[in-house]
Computed example of a mutant assay.
Amino acid sequence: MDVEGKNLRRGWTTGTCAAAASKAACQALLGSEFPALVEVTLPGGQRPAFALAMEERDEGLARAGVVKDAGDDPDVTHGALIISTVRKGRPGSGITFRAGEGVGTVTRAGLPLSVGESAINPVPRKMIAAAIAEVAGPMADLEVEISVAGGELLAEKTLNPRLGILGGISILGTTGIVIPFSCAAWIHSIWRGIDVARAAGLSHIAGSTGNTSEKAVAAYHGLPEIALIDMGDFVGGMLKYLRSHPVERVTIAGGVAKMTKLAQGMLDVHSKRGMADLAALAELARDAGATEALAARIAAANTVAGAFEEAEAEGLQIGERVARLAWRTAAKALGRSEIALEILVFDREGRLKGRAPFTPSDHSDASSS
């Protein structure tokens, strides 16, 4: 895979690794030797093969492990040992799943799994069942326990605790393949956060672009952690999901630079997608009463934060105008008249620099500058 001139290796999801380990363990449980290589079928039809990192047989069980290779993606589970322990199940039970050590358990509603279920997502479950069927047939009655060495510590670096998945990581994957630096995993985590908040009956959620703005908006509104959505740069990804999964009130909170980009029409506010237009910000400052000298300094500033500082040094607050224009961009993406939308603009210290108050997203008056 080529990204910006660099050849990046793709990797394998925890679900793929769990399927491979489960197939190998099942084969050993049924009396065969552990395979040197084990193949599994991915949802797209590909058939990768995996070497086993561990294999073990005991009375009534077989256990196999595969080390996850995430390719060149900065995945927290890269190098983790994904272990499957397979035992015979009750007659007629089919394939049942258990969370072993390092795999979480669902404790909040709103996720694709019921409360109390092992955090082994639906697609990995299907992959595991299909892999087992290749060696045991489609009617096998087996218990599959998935564990991850060190998974509880790894989970602290993920959104699992906030989503109510406790005790470890989730076994994930929709394609079976990890694409380096893909935004898909992050956007899916945004969606799951919204689902959990809605299932808990919350009427107000806040999406934040970073840690500072998240802490600031939580303090500003007194919001619980479950209401906080780590949307990062994906403002559009969050708002578009809310079209079909609405809540009563939505706050978008971010720093001056990212909210300026939102004000200028960008729904993905990552620096690689484009920089804020300082000349346009200078024009906005002129409309707010800036002198030509100040407007020139804003246009020539090194950063948006520097431009804000230039304006504030002369007593000009441009955050309110940025917030109103950001509201207009966000409201257009949201497109739900019954949702009240708010924009909060914070500086690096978490101080409020601009606000567009809660207004139904089809209310054009709130977007005037």
Score class of each variant (00 low, 15 high):
residue 115 V to C: 08
residue 141 D to I: 06
residue 235 V to T: 02
residue 129 A to Q: 11
residue 271 S to Y: 07
residue 291 T to W: 11
residue 264 Q to R: 02
residue 354 G to S: 05
residue 49 A to G: 11
residue 324 R to K: 12
residue 185 A to S: 13
residue 217 V to S: 04
residue 256 V to R: 04
residue 93 S to P: 04
residue 167 G to Y: 03
residue 324 R to T: 07
residue 19 A to S: 13
residue 79 G to P: 13
residue 187 I to V: 15
residue 340 A to D: 07
residue 343 I to Q: 14
residue 103 V to K: 14
residue 194 I to Y: 04
residue 100 G to Q: 14
residue 268 D to S: 01
residue 153 L to I: 15
residue 338 E to Q: 09
residue 344 L to E: 06
residue 295 A to D: 09
residue 235 V to N: 01
residue 157 K to C: 09
residue 133 A to F: 15
residue 79 G to V: 12
residue 355 R to G: 01
residue 174 T to F: 02
residue 170 S to E: 07
residue 321 R to E: 10
residue 326 A to P: 06
residue 368 S to Q: 12
residue 54 M to R: 13
residue 261 K to W: 00
residue 13 T to P: 05
residue 230 D to S: 15
residue 192 R to S: 11
residue 213 S to G: 08
residue 86 V to S: 11
residue 166 L to G: 15
residue 129 A to T: 15
residue 29 L to P: 03
residue 111 L to I: 04
residue 299 A to M: 12
residue 216 A to V: 00
residue 31 G to H: 07
residue 121 N to S: 14
residue 160 N to V: 03
residue 196 V to H: 02
residue 303 T to W: 03
residue 203 S to W: 08
residue 350 G to P: 08
residue 128 I to A: 15
residue 4 E to V: 12
residue 101 E to S: 13
residue 55 E to T: 10
residue 147 S to I: 08
residue 158 T to Q: 05
residue 273 R to H: 15
residue 157 K to R: 13
residue 215 K to E: 03
residue 318 I to R: 03
residue 300 A to H: 13
residue 248 E to T: 07
residue 74 P to E: 00
residue 213 S to K: 05
residue 347 D to E: 09
residue 321 R to Q: 10
residue 53 A to R: 12
residue 276 A to G: 06
residue 178 V to G: 05
residue 318 I to L: 02
residue 331 A to T: 00
residue 335 G to R: 05
residue 82 I to C: 07
residue 103 V to P: 14
residue 139 M to V: 14
residue 224 P to R: 01
residue 223 L to C: 08
residue 189 S to C: 06
residue 178 V to P: 05
residue 17 C to N: 04
residue 206 A to I: 00
residue 71 G to A: 01
residue 331 A to W: 00
residue 38 V to F: 06
residue 16 T to K: 06
residue 309 E to A: 15
residue 299 A to Q: 09
residue 270 H to N: 04
residue 43 P to A: 07
residue 41 T to L: 11
residue 198 R to A: 03
residue 173 G to S: 11
residue 19 A to G: 09
residue 147 S to A: 08
residue 18 A to Y: 02
residue 227 A to I: 02
residue 205 I to E: 00
residue 353 K to S: 06
residue 59 E to V: 14
residue 367 S to F: 10
residue 257 A to V: 04
residue 134 E to L: 07
residue 38 V to G: 08
residue 14 T to D: 03
residue 319 G to H: 01
residue 143 E to W: 13
residue 188 H to V: 15
residue 343 I to E: 11
residue 145 E to K: 12
residue 236 G to K: 00
residue 344 L to V: 04
residue 81 L to A: 12
residue 171 I to Q: 10
